[in-house]
């Protein structure tokens, strides 16, 4: 609804899958997986409420369909957000802190090793959150300076950075494999 939608569509198509831009909740029934893009989490949350997406999104996750949140999308998935009483969708057993690396001038690119997905991955962090705490069923996939920046819990995948801003599609390809596993 808001954010880096076009870039994710490009990445998904480059991996040979079909991408659909979701603007209405009814569309969720027709997709096998959902990417929640980077953007402004407060703005996206308002639109989720306004268009009554919340229940459908929770059901989507509980039905075991894969969801991938990048940056703002990770904040939406998290069960706890530091400084807020209530989470957003709140389905992934992690606690995240918003803008935890600082303001825009502190935004950065860094090389990451992502367990089982990619070595030497150039990740773009923009006013990024990080995962402060992860539940016991959460697999930690990557850290930057001892902070968790990518994790998976079953059908839920989240990262602090923006894979859609580079032409390295290894993470999108991994997510598409997660979807294929649920379809078979």
């Amino acid at each position: 609804m808001q954010g880096a939608v076009r870039e994710h569509v490009q990445a998904i198509e480059a991996c040979g899958a079909e991408a659909v831009v979701i603007k209405k909740k009814e569309q969720l029934a027709n997709v096998d997986g959902l990417v929640m893009p980077g953007g402004e989490s407060t703005a996206i949350r308002r639109l989720i409420d306004k268009y009554d997406f919340m229940n459908e999104l929770k059901e989507f996750a509980q039905a075991g369909k894969p969801m991938f949140g990048t940056c703002a999308g990770l904040i939406l998935l998290a069960r706890n957000v530091v400084g807020y009483d209530e989470p957003h969708i709140g389905v992934m057993d992690v606690t995240v802190e918003r803008n935890s690396f600082g303001r825009q001038r502190e935004s950065f690119e860094a090389n990451l090793t992502i367990s089982g997905i990619a070595e030497n991955y150039n990740a773009v962090f923009i006013r990024a959150p990080h995962i402060v705490n992860a539940g016991e069923n959460v697999e930690i996939l990557a850290k930057h300076h001892e902070r968790i920046v990518m994790a998976r819990e079953g059908n839920l995948l989240g990262c602090s950075f923006h894979p859609e801003l580079t032409e390295d599609y290894r993470i999108t390809a991994y997510f598409i494999e997660m979807i294929k596993e649920t379809i078979v």
Partner: peptide, 20 residues
């Protein structure tokens, strides 16, 4: 780790797309 790169600066604006 690099700050202030073109990708980081342009990327910030990409995240604002569709917004006010």
């Amino acid at each position: 780790m690099k700050i202030g790169t073109e990708r980081v600066k342009r990327g910030m604006a990409e995240m604002q797309k569709g917004g006010v």
